[in-house]
Simulated scan of single mutants.
Amino acid sequence: MDLENEVMELIANAGYARSLVFQAIAVAREDHDFAQAESLMEQAREALSVAHLTQTKLIEMDEGSGKVPVHIIMVHAQDHLMNAIMLTELGNEIIALHKMINGQ
């Protein structure tokens, strides 16, 4: 496994998920298009799933024994993933609030 490519894949997918969530929130707020917002959220969840699978591969490769060297880029990747997970959860709540405000 090419460690650098795996880490970059994690960052890219987590970042893509984050972008999709922000798009979904904007669509819900500005256009009140909740079907489109949900579609964007589903895409975000899919990207997040890919990022999480990459993280799982890295954890399995390490086996808890320090086999994988921890570099700042790995810390950065983990930060991206955790932020994307939290934002996805908050995005669901924000969209639900926009639905309530708009009587849906």
Rank of each mutant, 00 (worst) to 15 (best):
A44W: 04
A47C: 07
N92M: 13
L58A: 12
I85M: 06
A24N: 12
S49L: 13
N13Y: 07
A17D: 05
L97I: 15
L81V: 10
M61E: 14
N83Y: 03
M41A: 02
F34P: 07
Q23V: 12
S39W: 11
T88G: 07
M74E: 06
E46D: 13
V70A: 00
N13H: 09
R45H: 10
Q43E: 14
M41C: 03
V21N: 06
A26Y: 13
E46M: 12
A44V: 04
L10H: 01
E6C: 09
Y16R: 15
G15R: 03
G66K: 02
A12R: 02
A51P: 04
E6R: 03
M82Y: 00
H32C: 11
Q36H: 08
M82E: 00
V27D: 08
Q36I: 09
A17Q: 11
T88N: 07
G64C: 06
I11D: 01
N83V: 14
E42G: 12
E93S: 09
D31S: 14
H76W: 06
S19D: 06
A51F: 02
P69A: 10
I94Y: 00
V70F: 03
S49F: 03
D79V: 15
E89C: 03
D33G: 06
L90I: 14
H76Q: 05
D33S: 06
H32W: 05
A96Y: 01
E6Y: 04
Q36T: 14
L48W: 01
I94L: 07
M82S: 00
V68T: 05
S19I: 05
A28I: 03
M41L: 08
Q55Y: 02
